[in-house]
Write a protein that binds this DNA or RNA. Sequence first.
DNA 1: GGCGGCCTGTAGGAATTCGTTACATTTGGG
DNA 2: CCCAAATGTAACGAATTCCTACAGGCCGCC
Lengths: 231, 231
Amino acid sequence: MSALVTILDDEPAIREMLSDALAEAGFRTMSFGRATEFEAALRRTTPDVCLVDLGLPDRDGLTLVHRLALEQGATVIIISGRAQVQDRVTGLELGADDYIIKPFDPAEVVARIRARLRGRTRSAPSDTARFNGWTAHFDRYALEDETGTETTFSHAEGEVLRLFLESPKRLITRAHMQESLGGAAGESFDRAMDVRISRLRTKLREDPKTPRLIKTIYGAGYIFLGDVSWS
Amino acid sequence: MSALVTILDDEPAIREMLSDALAEAGFRTMSFGRATEFEAALRRTTPDVCLVDLGLPDRDGLTLVHRLALEQGATVIIISGRAQVQDRVTGLELGADDYIIKPFDPAEVVARIRARLRGRTRSAPSDTARFNGWTAHFDRYALEDETGTETTFSHAEGEVLRLFLESPKRLITRAHMQESLGGAAGESFDRAMDVRISRLRTKLREDPKTPRLIKTIYGAGYIFLGDVSWS
DNA sequence: GGCGGCCTGTAGGAATTCGTTACATTTGGG
DNA sequence: CCCAAATGTAACGAATTCCTACAGGCCGCC
């Protein structure tokens, strides 16, 4: 599945230029002219990379970047006409992953997006993860207690657990989850996901009232708390 | 443990400028003027980030970048005087994580290194705020008492609380709040905000008669009193 | 083939979140 | 002091999510 890149810029010409170049490079794209539209879309899906113009009419761009990058853990590339070094430094320190100055060449934007996507999967694929006293062995579908007791989990449960462990402390939208789990565009596949998560919560011995590891964000998705280390 | 950054550049002045700036920023540094020295050092240590100048006397820089980035999995930032778009694109496509053009500002180099190190852990850093005996844990949606007792708050309540904590002791107009909370269309969204604040006040155990933290400014908006410190 | 067990999606009711409505209360101007 | 506008809050209801069955499918075993 190709990566999803969002474009947030108030100038239609720039949106079009970017989305053409990105589509030709093989990315899926979504364009927005206003921050509010963009934020509405974020409730339904999780982009792999967000291109954000700082000069927005309806919102302070830097605040948006901060929330995207630090609160939600998204990958953010700022595209801005402000070329001062100080602008770039503050943008990057607020959590942006890259900073591109207008006017730009679409080819460079594509190359920088690819660099960000590449860095994500560089770590060697491994199939055991430790988190908060638990150890998940994906090779033998077993979940190990802190006392060493093992419970097995099914393939479907493992898919959900892996998704959570690969993006801890980040919001995972239902749409993104549905896409990652190969969920056909089923109309009521939501319920199936609910059940998968419910069963996973049971195996993790979560208290339904106060979940410590898998937290529900009403109307948005889920977030996995817990400090994960792969090996 | 601070991160290790290597500098590979044939000009001593640039090496010194970079290593000074990086040391001041809290990194450990190692400088090299020739690729062969650098490669010898690589056999003994693994740097977190490698700064590489392309114009080296004893080796083709791009080949070195390619080997570093793709075969060894290192994080590479190219620093080059070659400013053409095509140079940047090929450098990034050969595996570099970033490309900085000479002349550069050391502050931007530091910011870009930090961005690379930050991107390594996909989990969002914990953001918590302390104020007047309370501790708000936005990552797990919990509000902690001065005695350590925790209450959870919902997503909507968290949005309001975050807005207050980001601008303490400043007037927050209803219009600004409405815009920040995404409520775009609703004309009678005012009531919704009132209710959100009411529920938040209940969780903060505010006495309705004498609010200590969230003060209402009749006809204008709200002010959050209290000394906030983020971490 | 038939039986039983495990996995997994579907269904429907319970529980939660949160905006809306309705009404009480407060504020500030005349 | 009176009134209209602004604000607080309880109660309701729509949307969303959780959970307990239940059914179909797949596999192994007799």
